[in-house]
Amino acid sequence: MAVGFRLEIFCFATVYLTIRTAGLSLPLSQAVDSPGPLTTVSLNVSNPAPVGLCTSSLIWTGRTAFDAELTQNCYQAWRTFMATDVATYKNTEFEFLQPGDEGSHPRVPKMVTPRRYISKSCTIAIANIAEIPRGILPGEPPGPFPRSDLGRFVNFRAPIAAVRADCLGVRREVGWAMIGRQQAMAILMFTTQAAIDRMIPRGVIPSNLLNTTTGAVGGLDTAQ
């Protein structure tokens, strides 16, 4: 019995050494991917809710601390959004597009993006993902994204509220959420004058006084 047992051990050891010597590797399905090279955009990403993603990247925050002032300013930016575009256009459906684009829906009124709602240190912006540089949005889907999308301002309230509550309120971060019928647009909340503020077009700043827009680019285009 002892001889037979030692023979089995010898055979097992021989097979094991043969596999090691041959340099056989695990199947691809079991292989462990090595980390890729670091990119110039380093994002701290977390998913607070199905509608949005949070980040503490300096590209979004600059050097501003997450304090009560930033929280209050983001709340005021939210109120500006509610008092301007939501109050003015309510349930009207628009095609949101970049300046100069004709769009894909000739019978739908047009709304130029980005649209910025600013209160001191906090900016909330609506933009088409196609006009945001790649790699800036944490958790960004692969795309490609159409240059325009359909949406209603009233339907943008919940995503903004989720980013403000979950990212800023709970995680002390800023963030964004996908919106639009094709999910080709973004609601962004970031620190005013942070790097991302300069990476996206200036767009327009809605006004609740004139029910029009101010800024470098025009506002509502009602051409049919």
Results as ranks from 00 to 15, higher is better:
M1S: 12
R6T: 08
E8V: 12
E8L: 15
E8G: 15
I9M: 15
F10T: 05
C11V: 06
T14E: 13
Y16D: 01
Y16Q: 05
R20K: 14
R20T: 14
A22K: 04
G23V: 08
P27V: 00
P27L: 01
Q30C: 15
S34L: 15
P35S: 12
G36K: 04
T39M: 07
T39K: 13
V45L: 09
V45H: 12
A49N: 07
V51G: 14
S57M: 01
L58A: 00
I59G: 00
G62H: 04
T64D: 09
T64A: 10
D67I: 08
A68R: 05
T71F: 10
Q72D: 05
C74A: 10
Y75N: 08
A77S: 14
A77I: 02
W78Y: 09
R79D: 09
R79E: 11
T84Y: 02
D85H: 03
D85G: 02
A87G: 00
N91P: 00
E93L: 01
E95C: 13
E95Q: 07
E95P: 09
F96P: 02
L97S: 13
L97M: 06
Q98G: 10
V108D: 09
P109C: 09
K120Q: 05
C122M: 04
T123F: 10
I126E: 07
A130L: 12
E131V: 13
I132Y: 13
G135Q: 07
G139F: 04
G139R: 09
P141M: 01
P142T: 06
N155G: 15
A161S: 10
A162C: 02
A165S: 11
C167I: 15
L168G: 03
G169P: 00
G169N: 00
V170C: 13
R171M: 05
E173C: 05
V174S: 00
G175T: 06
G175S: 07
W176Y: 01
G180N: 06
R181M: 04
R181L: 04
Q183C: 03
M185S: 04
I187W: 12
Q193W: 09
A195T: 13
P201S: 10
V204C: 08
S207V: 12
N208Y: 08
L210A: 14
T213S: 05
T213K: 00
G219K: 02
L220Q: 14
L220T: 12
